[in-house]
Nucleic acid binder design. Structure first.
Lengths: 145, 145
DNA sequence: TAGATTACGGACTATAAAGTCTTAAATAAG
DNA sequence: CTTATTTAAGACTTTATAGTCCGTAATCTA
């Protein structure tokens, strides 16, 4: 699996927030209901995103979470880094520590190309851009059943 | 992590076998020693590869495992499929079941490109080709320390 | 045939990831 | 000021992956 469960949930939830195009805080309970993600687990994930500065949160009635910047200035790469860390974009495909140009594994040259492309793909994708797609009738953020 | 630990070990071990360019069976104990992989765990991984038809094994003195075909006819993709299954090449980057052209997630279009490239990369890489690189002095299949 | 060597298969344990629960702290509204 | 609502933080449980162990079967050598 490319991304951890937590990271998949975090991306989906952030895209959902961006798709609302709404001022103000959205309760985590609502998001977890909409996306079929367990509320306590999603709470933990949002805490990571809040600590990373990608979300702001507010307690109490009418509280919840909100994007800390406009959705066109948050890139998916940032969310992945906040939740899963940089491993995906740095590690050897064979798991060898220190694999790089100097001491490569046999796959390094080929994998490094794809790894960089994946990082570029996530770095080039903003929440706004991706959330826009949710307007299309078939595009979805949750399981069908 | 892109590949499971078991799969990383399986690829390294298969590349090692290919690099030996040797007729006959190689004991798992020797491979586990050379690559610093736990012997019982590597045994289990080799059983998967044997059952998938990628290796042949032989018991008793002078027994061990060997590639079931010449190394230029075994592709890394086959090893990954045998150990981790097809998930990497099929699954949605957001983990949504049934994500595809009909009912895509917002990332589908971009991810499908990279996912296919990764599959192509592994499908295009034979054990022979990759094992050849181990000839170069800096290229390695095990941790340095 | 006996003993050593090696893979096989299944049961077992350990560790990490996933997910839950509980208590506390902040805020708003009555 | 009290109560309801909501996130925060940490302990806890569950599940999946990683890794180990042990008895068995196959094979070779003496």
């Amino acid at each position: 699996m490319l991304l951890s469960n937590a990271c998949e949930y975090g991306l989906r939830a952030a895209l959902y927030l961006a798709s609302l195009k709404q001022e103000g805080y959205v309760p985590i309970r609502k998001i977890s209901g909409e996306l079929d993600i367990s509320f306590p687990f999603l709470t933990k994930i949002f805490q990571m995103l809040t600590q990373a500065g990608l979300l702001t949160s507010y307690r109490g009635p009418n509280g919840g979470v909100a994007l800390s910047r406009s959705a066109d200035r948050i890139r998916l790469r940032e969310i992945i880094l906040a939740i899963d860390g940089p491993a995906l974009f740095e590690e050897c495909v064979l798991g060898l520590p220190g694999c790089g140009e100097q001491k490569p594994c046999p796959l390094h040259a080929r994998w490094a190309v794809e790894r960089d492309r994946i990082e570029q793909m996530f770095a080039a994708s903003t929440l706004a851009e991706m959330a826009d797609k949710i307007g299309s009738p078939d595009v979805r953020l949750k399981s069908l059943c």
